[in-house]
């Protein structure tokens, strides 16, 4: 199989939400000596970006996105361990979770998928995450970006508490904070001292990658 065929095949597998095909082609990419980084970015992640675009245009919906996401991760599970990064190329670290009190995580999972697609190492704390866990993990993992979400108006205050917690630990300036979820607005993000709120997952991921690039690599000492 030609390299192009494999890469296009990976993209198609993600678009069609075919997990098994994605795994199979990822293995084939390794067998045929395709650069695994290229297979992830130009193959899998490209497919996810196309799906995100279709979602924005209302040509695809949550069922399609979830299936695409599963296919992308199936391929990444095989390819990522073989990607060698050097020095300044080390992966940017994302700490992500749905805030304490909120048990919804579809939106959070889609943000995580897009963040993974643009190259983040995503540390997923899951849902109903205690505020201190965001802060502790951000410090331990020397995070670049912290992403906090909620779907419920009743837990919006907890989103603010994560930002306050980062401040009181003195690490607010070492990370970029993005907040999201249905009730969150850019005004609310600003009010609580977060850096950004984006209406959709792909935009969030693109912003996060750029914002992480502005952080000093030596900031964690």
């Amino acid at each position: 199989m030609e390299e192009n065929e494999i890469i296009n095949g990976l993209t198609e597998a993600v678009i069609n939400g075919k997990k098994d095909v994605a795994s199979e082609l990822a293995q084939k990419a390794l067998d045929e000596g395709v650069d695994p980084y290229k297979a992830v970015i130009e193959g899998l992640a490209n497919g996810m970006e196309i799906m995100s675009d279709k979602y924005d245009k209302k040509q695809a919906f949550i069922p399609h996105l979830l299936l695409a996401s599963n296919a992308m991760y199936a391929g990444m599970d095989i390819l990522t361990p073989h990607i060698k990064l050097e020095g300044a190329d080390t992966k940017k670290v994302l700490v992500i979770g749905s805030v304490e009190g909120d048990v919804h995580d579809i939106g959070k999972n889609l943000v995580k998928t897009m963040m993974s697609a643009v190259g983040f190492e995503a540390i997923d704390l899951g849902k109903d995450v205690p505020i201190e866990d965001f802060i502790k993990t951000a410090a331990e993992k020397k995070a670049d970006v912290v992403s906090v979400s909620t779907l419920m108006t009743s837990t919006m205050d907890n989103v603010g508490k994560v930002v306050t917690g980062l401040q009181s630990q003195g690490i607010r300036d070492k990370v970029k904070v993005i907040v999201g979820g249905a009730p969150i607005t850019p005004d609310f993000a600003q009010e609580i001292g977060a850096d950004m709120n984006k209406p959709d997952a792909m935009e969030a991921a693109k912003w996060a990658l750029e914002a992480a690039g502005t952080l000093s690599p030596d900031r964690w000492g």
Binding site: G17, I62, P63, H64, L66, L67, N70, I106, N109
Partner: peptide, 10 residues
Amino acid sequence: GDDWFMAIMT
């Protein structure tokens, strides 16, 4: 659970 969103398709 969230598998529901995929189940209606698959």
